[in-house]
Simulated scan of single mutants.
Amino acid sequence: MGRIGQKLGIDFVVSTGDNFYENGLKGVTDPSFLQSFSNIYTAKSLQKQWFSVLGNHDYRGDTLAQLSPLLRKIDTRWLCLRSFVVNAEIVEIFFVDTTPFVEDYFRDPEGHTYDWRGVEPNRKRYISNMLSDIESEMKESRAKWKIVVGHHSIRSVGHHGDTRGLVRKLLPLLQAYNVDLYINGHDHCLEHISDSKSTIQFLTSGGGSKAWRGDIKRIDKDDVKFFYDGQGFMSAQFTQGHVEIAFYDIYGKVLHKWVRSKQFHSDI
C-alpha cells in the first residue's frame, strides 16, 4: 500500500470503517490506536490525512473515543467523524454513518454491546437529520464528481450482502443527485458492481482484515464486474473528466481496473 501510494502520489487516505477490530477502542488511551494505526501505516506516502467513518465493530467499543480530537493530538493524520463532507476541488466526498441504519444491531445484537451515545434515544430522528444534511450538501455541491463513503454495502454479493436500510433510505439520494461512486467496507473482500439502472458504481474495499471467507451470495454477471475474496485495497484517481479505479492485492498487483470519462457542461 505504501509503494502504490508513493507511485500515485496520493493526496489522502480513506478508511471505510471497522477501524479497530474486533471491538473498537476502549478509550482515547487504548494502545490499539498505536498498534493498529500509527505503528502500522508508517510508509512515507501514507503520512497524509486519513478520513475515517465508523463501522459496526467500532460501535462495539467507545464510539466517542474514535471521534475525539485527543486522538488527533496523538497522530495528526487521524480524522474520524460520524458524517461529514470533504471538498477535494473536482471531487466531493460525502461520508455517511451507516451503522445506525441496520435495525438488527438494535433488535438482535447477538450478544454484542453497542455504544449508541449520540444516536439513541431517538434513532429515527438521528437518521432523518443525517439524510436531510446529506441532501442539503448534495444540492449545493458543484463538484464534477460525487462520491459517498459508508461502512455498510448498498449492493454486494459478499457475506453480508445488500443493506436493506441503505437501499430504502440512502440509495434514492445517490440516484437523485447523480452520485458516481459508493465506496464501502463491511464485506471482507474487494468488489465492483455496476448498477444497470443508473451510473452508480458500487465499490467494496473491505480487504484490510479478515478475508478468504468463500461466502458469495449470488453472481449476476451483468452487474458484478469484479470480486476478489482476499486481502487488498483500492485507489481512485480523478481529473476534470476522467476517473480511474484500481484494486490491488497485498503485494500491489493490479487485480481489476475501471476507467470512465464523462463530459461536463460549462455553467457560463
Results as ranks from 00 to 15, higher is better:
residue 258 W to H: 14
residue 83 S to D: 14
residue 222 D to V: 12
residue 103 E to Y: 04
residue 266 S to W: 05
residue 193 I to H: 08
residue 61 G to H: 11
residue 157 V to C: 15
residue 85 V to W: 04
residue 118 G to I: 03
residue 69 P to S: 01
residue 78 W to P: 00
residue 224 V to S: 05
residue 225 K to L: 15
residue 101 F to I: 04
residue 103 E to V: 10
residue 169 K to N: 15
residue 192 H to K: 05
residue 131 L to P: 00
residue 103 E to M: 09
residue 9 G to A: 07
residue 144 K to S: 14
residue 182 Y to V: 07
residue 239 T to V: 04
residue 200 I to L: 14
residue 44 K to N: 11
residue 49 Q to I: 01
residue 8 L to I: 13
residue 211 A to E: 10
residue 254 V to L: 01
residue 75 D to H: 04
residue 78 W to T: 00
residue 72 R to N: 11
residue 229 D to W: 10
residue 196 S to N: 08
residue 179 V to M: 02
residue 6 Q to H: 08
residue 28 V to P: 00
residue 43 A to R: 00
residue 103 E to L: 13
residue 152 H to V: 03
residue 227 F to T: 03
residue 246 A to S: 14
residue 188 H to Q: 11
residue 189 C to Q: 08
residue 79 L to E: 07
residue 48 K to Y: 04
residue 70 L to I: 10
residue 75 D to T: 01
residue 85 V to S: 07
residue 148 V to M: 15
residue 177 Y to Q: 04
residue 217 K to A: 10
residue 217 K to F: 02
residue 202 F to H: 15
residue 245 I to L: 15
residue 142 R to A: 11
residue 194 S to M: 13
residue 150 G to V: 06
residue 132 S to R: 12
residue 231 Q to K: 15
residue 110 E to H: 14
residue 205 S to C: 14
residue 149 V to G: 01
residue 20 F to C: 07
residue 31 P to C: 08
residue 162 D to I: 03
residue 55 G to Q: 03
residue 204 T to V: 15
residue 74 I to L: 13
residue 183 I to K: 09
residue 181 L to D: 08
residue 36 S to L: 14
residue 41 Y to N: 01
residue 230 G to M: 08
residue 28 V to N: 01
residue 119 V to K: 01
residue 111 G to E: 07
residue 227 F to G: 01
residue 6 Q to M: 08
residue 60 R to C: 11
residue 43 A to F: 09
residue 122 N to C: 03
residue 169 K to R: 15
residue 128 S to H: 13
residue 238 F to P: 09
residue 91 V to G: 06
residue 231 Q to R: 15
residue 162 D to S: 13
residue 89 E to S: 15
residue 105 Y to V: 09
residue 246 A to H: 06
residue 58 D to W: 11
residue 63 T to A: 12
residue 55 G to N: 04
residue 244 E to M: 12
residue 118 G to D: 03
residue 184 N to R: 03
residue 116 W to E: 05
residue 265 H to D: 12
residue 183 I to Q: 11
residue 257 K to H: 07
residue 23 N to I: 12
residue 233 F to W: 09
residue 3 R to F: 05
residue 89 E to V: 10
residue 203 L to P: 00
residue 243 V to W: 10
residue 165 G to Q: 06
residue 196 S to R: 13
residue 136 S to V: 00
residue 79 L to R: 06
residue 27 G to I: 06
residue 267 D to Y: 12
residue 34 L to I: 05
residue 34 L to T: 05
residue 265 H to Y: 12
residue 45 S to I: 03
residue 135 E to V: 03
residue 3 R to K: 13
residue 45 S to R: 00
residue 24 G to A: 09
